[in-house]
């Protein structure tokens, strides 16, 4: 069990390390910051005119873009975990009795920080091109909370994938999964416009309730059962990913 118990100080040092490493990985950092912005511009100006959502498309699409960006950014955690395991540095950490939880938590927290920055950037650009959220700070805080929970869940899930993959290239495959999942959801087009069989999936996958919750909070519309579903999905993914990551970490280092 000692491999997995984290001393809080170790986890903090690991977070500092991973934040610094992400800051210095300029290519990845630029991609994770610029890609979401470009995608948003693409949707708003290229496809937006052709999609009827009953309101300004920018208003409809921003929550979806935020989530796409979060999923994509968090997925890069898989690559950093696999890369870390490929070098000898994890072994040194282990001989220094740094637990697996601290090592993984470092990656996860750095991912959350990285993506929080990207989210703020996307929001700023969104406001510049006409996104007008409801002025209600408590709701903004709630939205930030849901987004952070989603980031945390996807980052841990991603870390678990990183432990499963043998090479950084393989780990990168998870990025595609995370990027694909927001498409068959209510992120870019209303679910009602999809064929019935796809609607069933779109309605019941984790991304849709999270997006609906963000929409409700940012645009001050009724949320229904979406927030409860969103939180349940995120917590479920988070807990399962943490357990799976713990098991995989132990198996990977044996």
């Amino acid at each position: 069990m000692s491999e997995l118990t984290a001393r809080p100080a170790d986890a903090l040092v690991m977070v500092g390390r991973c934040v610094r490493l992400s800051r210095r990985n300029v290519d990845a950092l630029l991609t994770s910051l610029l890609l979401p912005v470009i995608l948003m511009l693409l949707f708003v100006y290229l496809f937006g005119g052709a999609i009827d959502t009953g309101s300004a498309y920018v208003t409809y699409v921003v929550p979806g873009v935020l989530l796409l960006c979060a999923g994509f950014g968090a997925a890069s955690t898989a690559v950093s975990v696999t890369t870390d395991l490929a070098t000898g540095v994890i072994e040194r950490f282990r001989t220094m009795d740094v637990g697996g939880t601290a090592i993984l938590a470092g990656h996860v927290v750095a991912s959350v920080v990285r993506n929080a920055v990207a989210t703020v950037l996307v929001l700023a650009v969104a406001v510049a091109i006409g996104f007008r959220p409801a002025v209600d700070p408590p709701r903004w805080l709630a939205a930030a909370g849901v987004l952070l929970l989603f980031l945390l869940a996807v980052s841990w899930l991603s870390a678990a994938f990183g432990l499963l993959a043998r090479t950084p290239e393989a780990a990168n495959g998870f990025t595609f999964l995370a990027m694909f999942l927001p498409y068959p959801s209510s992120a870019f087009v209303p679910v009602e416009t999809m064929p019935t069989w796809l609607r069933g999936f779109a309605d019941h996958q984790p991304v849709t309730p999270v997006i609906e919750t963000l929409r409700a909070l940012l645009l001050d519309t009724p949320a229904g059962s979406a927030p409860a579903h969103a939180v349940a999905w995120c917590l479920g993914i988070l807990v399962i990913s943490m357990v799976v990551a713990a098991v995989l970490f132990r198996r990977r280092i044996a």
Binding site: A9, V13, R17, T87, G88, E91, R92, M96
Partner: peptide, 27 residues
């Protein structure tokens, strides 16, 4: 104990000083 090996277990993207300070904090 401590272990030093043929594959230097260090972070390439951190400076020499940062690596040592990090290890010292972990110690």
């Amino acid at each position: 104990i401590s272990l030093a090996g043929q594959h230097a277990a260090l972070d390439d993207a951190q400076t020499g000083r940062e690596n040592l300070e990090m290890m010292a904090r972990l110690a």
